[in-house]
Design a protein around this nucleic acid. Sequence first.
DNA 1: TTTCTTGCAAACGTTTTGCAAGGTA
DNA 2: TACCTTGCAAAACGTTTGCAAGAAA
Lengths: 142, 142
Amino acid sequence: MDYSRLAKVLSSNGFSLTQARKRVFGALVDQEGISMNELICELSGTVDRVSVYRNVTLFEKLGILQRISNGFKYKVELSDSFSSHHHHLSCSQCGQIINIKADQLEGAIKQLGKDHGFVISGHQVEIHGSCAQCALKGKEVG
Amino acid sequence: MDYSRLAKVLSSNGFSLTQARKRVFGALVDQEGISMNELICELSGTVDRVSVYRNVTLFEKLGILQRISNGFKYKVELSDSFSSHHHHLSCSQCGQIINIKADQLEGAIKQLGKDHGFVISGHQVEIHGSCAQCALKGKEVG
DNA sequence: TTTCTTGCAAACGTTTTGCAAGGTA
DNA sequence: TACCTTGCAAAACGTTTGCAAGAAA
């Protein structure tokens, strides 16, 4: 596991690269968004629940991770600088989250900011419905 | 206050139009999204906290209201059938939520669904940043 | 060594559940 | 009347805080 970029962001802000932080980071690499609870469970035995919360908060402040809305709960995932910018299609039947690119959407959002004199610092698009497979199943049953 | 549409949705699903439901609904009419806590406070003395939760859950299931993400908390507002479809620009400085129309965005979202064989049942766009006034203030200070 | 971090325990705010009393059709 | 809803009390979560012991620079 390569922690060099993580270490850089941390140290340049006066924080140190600790075991707990490596583990929290490691649990998020190559992973779609996961819930706080899943993250805590995955790290249980190695990192205390409280430290997970503290480091998630810190990582968010440093732009290392972001929280994504999932219904009225949230999940966390590495932010755009550590993965790549994308949006999510959440299937409400199988729970799957599909990552997608959406250039047209990005354009529309930027334009909205301009139209309203609003300086956009970030955005999130939450699209829910049925994925291709579940939509098919639904038809078979109905 | 006109409860006819509310009454219709409720009764056609086998639920009754009660005092508590009228009050919860009334607190949401002509109102931008408010937090659960604000809603509970506003109704305090007339509707118990527990009934507010129960009716918000029911209203959401019946499509009367929707929860909107606001950072990693959420707010509630009447859904599109009881108000009109729109999105939100949340100012992270003054906390203001600006309702906007965004036809181009709607188009881009529909297209995404098509591209991925995803049957969209709903969507939410969360755009955060600084509103025109706060952006100006920021410049003056900096 | 000095400062930053962690784990534990316990507080806190939010949301849910069980149950008897009250309201609705 | 018969069933649905409410309010209360209390449990169950998710998240945060205080503090002493342990790790990082």
